[in-house]
Amino acid sequence: MRDFNYQRPNSVADAAKALKGEAKLMAGGMTLIPTMKQRLASPSDVVDLAGVKDLAGIKKDGNAIVIGAMTSHDEVAHSAEVKKAIPALADLADGIGDPQVRNRGTIGGSIANNDPAADYPAGCMALGATIVTNKRKIAADDFFKGMFETALGDGEIITAVSFPIPDKANYQKFPNPASRYAIVGVMVAKSGGTVRVAVTGAGQSGVFRHKDAEAALAKSFAAGALDGLKTDAKKLNSDMHASAEYRAHLVGVMAKRAVAACG
């Protein structure tokens, strides 16, 4: 890793100021540090959010669960509040990486990175979350812009993510056996007559909503409603771990399982 200037501001405003030129923001560091070790990133400055108070924590706010950006996956996985309101989200967090990654990795870091095989983007999209930054609020549908790309602008920092509480939701993941990232991850959420289905791991442009699945499930919220569901393999990733055709098949399987698990 190349050396850098380490900064640990005490406020979001100071952090935003420090984000100049080749500076990089660091939350848990679970992606940034490995990336720097491999010299795929060599920032001039690393701006650590760990010194900023009040960025971590989980609270219920009306009909939403609001999770601070620096909240670890482990905290989300074991939060009584989350388990009660959106157990699927706790399960999703509990399946990220491994216990040590969950102890350090944060929701804000995961979302800001928008790894196409990460779990949280599917959770955000399916639950219709709102990403709160130091500048604005962004709907999940508008936030994830493609592989490793988001709507975040210069100096913009995620402070929290707000998840509306659904009637039912479930996340099913087919992990890459080596990296344990998602080869295919499907989150299904139902709120009233609206059903949202988000797929991670599979898409060439990162997380996406499966509109055909949503339409079918809006008509009948049952696994059987997805029989014969088509997922266009042309838009899916193909690599040595899974072909696009296999991923397309798995999207259907995981979606059905998620619906079935919703009960």
Binding site: G29, D48, V101, N103, R104
Partner: peptide, 20 residues
């Protein structure tokens, strides 16, 4: 793996300055 403030972490994926 070591413990930082009582929790297991991967010390290869944490900067020394983060453990201040």
């Amino acid at each position: 793996v070591v413990h930082v403030d009582g929790r297991s972490v991967k010390s290869c994926t944490m900067l020394a300055v983060q453990a201040e």
